[in-house]
Amino acid sequence: MISRVAETCFWLFRQLERAESTARLLQVNRAFILDINLPEIERWYPLVIVAGERKRFGKLFAEAARQDEELIQAYLTWHDDNPVSIKSALFWARENARTIREVISLDTWEAINSLWHWLSSGPGKRMYKTDRDKFYRHLITSINAIHGIALNTQSHEAPFYFMQLGMLLERAGQTARTLDFKYHSIGPTKLGMESPIEIAQWLALLRSCSAQDAYLKKAKTGISGPAIFEFLVKDDHFPRSVLYCLDSASRIMVKLRTTDRTEPADPTKSMIMLNKMVTEIRGTTTQESLEKSIHKELTSIVDSTMDICSQLHKDYFDPEIPETFSELTGTKAGSRHQRW
């Protein structure tokens, strides 16, 4: 497929994933701060930090704004100046979808377009004012519906694969970032010694990743930092664990090697990097990570994910054109992409 279109597919789902995870963080935090008594500064401002928006926020607003819950929620939901606000992310998701409308299914397009119109015109704004919990729930459900619609109405080939890659890599990074921040602020609690506040915080973290039920079913040892780390990073079955996302991404890269080709292409650099990362995470025990420093481990996951994204760019989205090339290298002439 056309390189630019592949990149647009990738970003389309990446932006959707961002919007969803921000909506979830905001929704969970609203309930969470009702349960416990935190100093003002620790109630909402941490979400700005997780979003990586500390610097811009500091430039735009005075220090008192860090305690302004309405402002922070509006900043993360609506602000055009904030490139990762829900509105910005959905705007770009929808722009990307519009740009490649001929590639995605009509149903996928209509679902994205109608969510954007809902958000950017009256109904979304009204619901935000009257029932904020329902507002975030609507966003989360709608974005999940888009995933389902794409899954069921699009051919599972190159464009779909790149969409999935965008979603999975964004999700892996997001889980690692959220975990890193919470881990840092709560500290490595020991089993049997958690305070009620700590337990509430861990549960909120799990909910931010939609992982509470899945974790509780699995956890044999109760709620502790290391156990949650193990679950959110290394669980093989939970769709938001770092390992699950990276492993799925790696399988998609394998499929891409054979898409539209008679013989598999040489493994790309990004695929090699991804496989290496999966092997490393699998090969490290939680005990080793604890000794090394959880923070280092998570930072390294976030950084490596970003490196893989830039390598994808070089491998697929903007590859250098070689001096010599033969037409139709290894591709099936007259295949799906030679539709005429």
Partner: peptide, 22 residues
């Protein structure tokens, strides 16, 4: 878009994820 295409030896190619195509 224009940036998706390039010309080599007086032939037009499109940049794809599996290399240039006529």
């Amino acid at each position: 878009q224009g940036s998706d295409l390039f010309v080599r030896d007086n032939k037009v190619y499109v940049k794809t994820t599996y290399g240039p195509q006529r």
